[in-house]
Amino acid sequence: MNDPLANADETAPLFLRASGITKTYKEHRAVDNVTLEIDQGEVVSIIGPSGAGKSTFLRCINFLEMPTEGTVSIGKESVAVEPGSRPPSRGDLAAIRRSVGMVFQSFNLFPHLTALRNISLAQERVLERSREEADERSYQLLKRVGLEAKSKAYPGQCSGGQQQRIAIARALALDPLVMLFDEPTSALDPEVGAEVLSVMRELADEGMTAIVVTHEMAFARDVSDRMVVMVDGSVVEEGEPHKIMSDPSHERTRKFLSAVVGR
């Protein structure tokens, strides 16, 4: 595996860099040459209208979607995809995924396992922690998201908001360098979504590095260090959240903001 960071001219150590990510389905370019860099401790929100390719781009970062083209680098690991060349090996993908945690819109908790086991299983199988060690860490994480009382509950016995907080704990348990949140509150009532957002806010305050695809404009404005606006598969605007929201420079951003903020 070659290391593009070694001969990059940036001096600041980049945490994650997804560059030139393109995803095409037949004729349609869902994601069109998007580049995103994120530093340690930074929270970046990706906003934009539905169908803009935000989630697809996010899923390309950990190769849940195989990009048609592009490079993802995290720390020392780097995986490049070029059209026509051999797809990356499973080992390379695993190396990237080990550093990236993900939280889904639909939680995707394992329904046949208790909250605690949901969080412990991968620690045991992937990080080879002992059962006791894994369960102890899981319990601490459940505490951190305010759900230690639910450790023995099955996902079906938890509310949507609780399930999403458990899913956040599950992702954190692998000690990822970067967390990806794919519309984490879109499947929740606003009231319930608020409890998830407040957990995310606390984690951000504690220094979590995260990329968040969201429609929660207040959260994006208050919590993220940087905002990226995607429209039709491309980044149209990027910068400081307050500035983008109060004084968007791009016509499409203006249109989008007036639609979502005016509600």
């Binding site: 849940l64 995924r97 889904f104 394992f110 299983l121 991968a122 992937v126 599950r170």
Partner: peptide, 23 residues
Amino acid sequence: VPNGQSEAAIVVGMNRVDSFRFI
């Protein structure tokens, strides 16, 4: 079994055998 289940197993780093066996 919903597709999201194997996606969740992938993103927590489980290999295909473990994903099938445990999830």
